[in-house]
């Protein structure tokens, strides 16, 4: 790659990769931190579950669905006031991270919920029979038993985030996708486009392999 790209472009590529890593990393951390409690809330308040409560479940589910319904490019613009509140600005990498985190949270919450729901109800029943509290059921049964599924959900989310982050250029967020559009496409530099694509492929492959390896380690189902 170094022979194909001039030094300036090499620096730009590195810089863009760093922006992508930042946006994806921060958004993913927020998504996991907020998405897991949200998923647990959605699960345990669902009908027939350990804290069934339609008054909580329905509105929360509706909000999550609403966020997931909005196309990301529109979401970015729609939440500008919120972005300003959090990031202090509506343009740039930090500003792009806010809608990314928001979209990723709604996305991962549903994936987490599905993974948690896959835990055999018999295990919850066994824990209840032991006198476990709802908190204990969550901490000692639901989350550890769903761990492989949760990791797989994180992998899928990270990869989706890499894709979404390409749209961050629309609000000056930078990143690899933005670089590919501005230099590779608009300035007719196919070698930049190629470099961006190859790098993204490597990143996605790497994330997937890492995720798969972790799932295998965590899974004792054989």
């Amino acid at each position: 790659m170094s022979t194909l790209l001039n030094p300036t472009m090499q620096i730009l590529l590195l810089q863009s990769a760093g922006e992508t890593a930042w946006m994806v990393g921060v958004a993913a951390l927020v998504a996991i931190a907020v998405g897991l409690p949200l998923a647990l809330l959605l699960l345990v308040t669902s009908p027939g579950h350990i804290a069934a409560n339609a008054l909580i479940n329905r509105p929360v589910a509706a909000i999550v669905n609403a966020v997931r319904s909005v196309p990301f490019i529109i979401l970015m613009v729609a939440v500008v006031p919120f972005t300003r509140l959090i990031a202090g600005t509506s343009i740039g990498t930090a500003a792009a991270t806010v809608p990314l985190a928001l979209a990723a949270t709604a996305f991962i919450a549903r994936l987490f919920e599905t993974a948690l729901r896959d835990v055999d109800h018999g295990l919850i029943e066994a824990a209840q029979a032991m006198g476990a509290s709802r908190g204990q059921i969550i901490r000692k049964v639901l989350v550890p038993e769903a761990a492989p599924g949760l990791v797989a959900a994180i992998t899928v989310t990270l990869i989706s985030l890499v894709g979404y982050s390409a749209m961050a250029g629309a609000i000056g967020g930078g990143g690899l996708g933005d670089l590919g559009i501005r230099f590779g496409y608009q300035r007719f530099m196919p070698e930049v486009m190629a470099a961006v694509v190859v790098l993204l492929i490597l990143v996605v492959q790497g994330l997937q392999s890492l995720g798969d390896a972790l799932v295998r380690r965590l899974s004792h189902r054989q």
Partner: peptide, 22 residues
């Protein structure tokens, strides 16, 4: 109190209900 009482009652299941992660 019910949780405490349940500790005085053991239960075994047809499909064992063991945690795969442990």
């Amino acid at each position: 109190a019910l949780a405490a009482a349940r500790r005085g009652i053991g239960m075994v299941f047809q499909h064992f209900n063991l945690l795969a992660s442990r």
